[in-house]
Design a protein around this nucleic acid. Structure first.
Lengths: 132, 132
DNA sequence: CGCCTATCTAACCATACGGTTATATAACCT
DNA sequence: AGGTTATATAACCGTATGGTTAGATAGGCG
């Protein structure tokens, strides 16, 4: 029902470790739902819903063989993600390079590292103490 | 407090067109919240929540300059997505190639090729990780 | 100091999501 | 036909998400 744009649907589908694990299994080759579901500790309906999400996201396709629904990876969905990423790849590559430069400079001169190249060192620093 | 793994948080953050548009704007350079928010038809708190999601996903960092909180892209988050994708990139490239081959063959020899499926997903190496 | 700008938090609401159990559909097998 | 296997749907539940309005917090400025 949410009827999101395709890229949003794809990212949403990937935002669940169970579904990513399903894709990893399908990378081994086409398989039926039961076989796919084997490693997961959840009931059939949950599996079925995950598969529907993956299918609507363009990440898998399902065929029919008797009562089985063989699932296989669909390349198009991940390709869409990759295409979206392409615009940013150069950008973060540049900035990671500069971060590397900065960290190297830090190691070379631990006393007073003054970057100037990078805007700020900003290492993962979770929420500050705004809340009192 | 969903406490999801980092990759799930990142994909979830990307599964919203407003947040992707924010990243696109930040690709132009660091900017303050108000400036970032200008194109979006929603109230401040909604913007603030989106930024928090992006920050916790490792996609942006926020500094401080007086009462402003300048936001900038963080390369690490998208790098994580790209690394995850890397395992699949070869896979779909192969399969898209085989689709191309198949379509070329169809054009070259029409009428003879009538397989039920384009290509069997015979994949030499699965992705390394099923989670995270 | 008091005011203004910029931004975040709190509380709330509607809807979506991920799971469950119970039931339905579809196809195969005697 | 009746039974079994494989999978999907329906109805429901608790929590998460994306938005709102109202108020809080932080810092510059008259």
């Amino acid at each position: 029902m949410p009827r999101a744009d395709p890229l949003s649907s794809t990212f949403a589908a990937l935002a669940d470790p169970t579904r990513r694990a399903m894709l990893a299994r399908l990378a081994l080759g086409e398989m039926n739902v039961n076989e796919l579901a084997k490693p997961f500790k959840m009931t059939g309906p949950a599996i079925s819903k995950h598969l529907k999400v993956l299918e609507r996201a363009g990440l898998i396709t399902r065929g029919r063989a008797a009562q089985r629904r063989p699932c296989q990876l669909a390349p198009a969905g991940l390709k869409g993600v990759d295409d979206w990423l392409a615009d940013y790849r150069r950008l973060w590559a540049e900035r990671l390079d500069r971060l590397d430069d900065y960290l190297s400079a830090l190691q070379a001169k631990p006393g007073q590292a003054k970057p100037g190249k990078v805007a700020a060192p900003q290492v993962p620093k979770p929420p500050r103490s705004t809340k009192g």
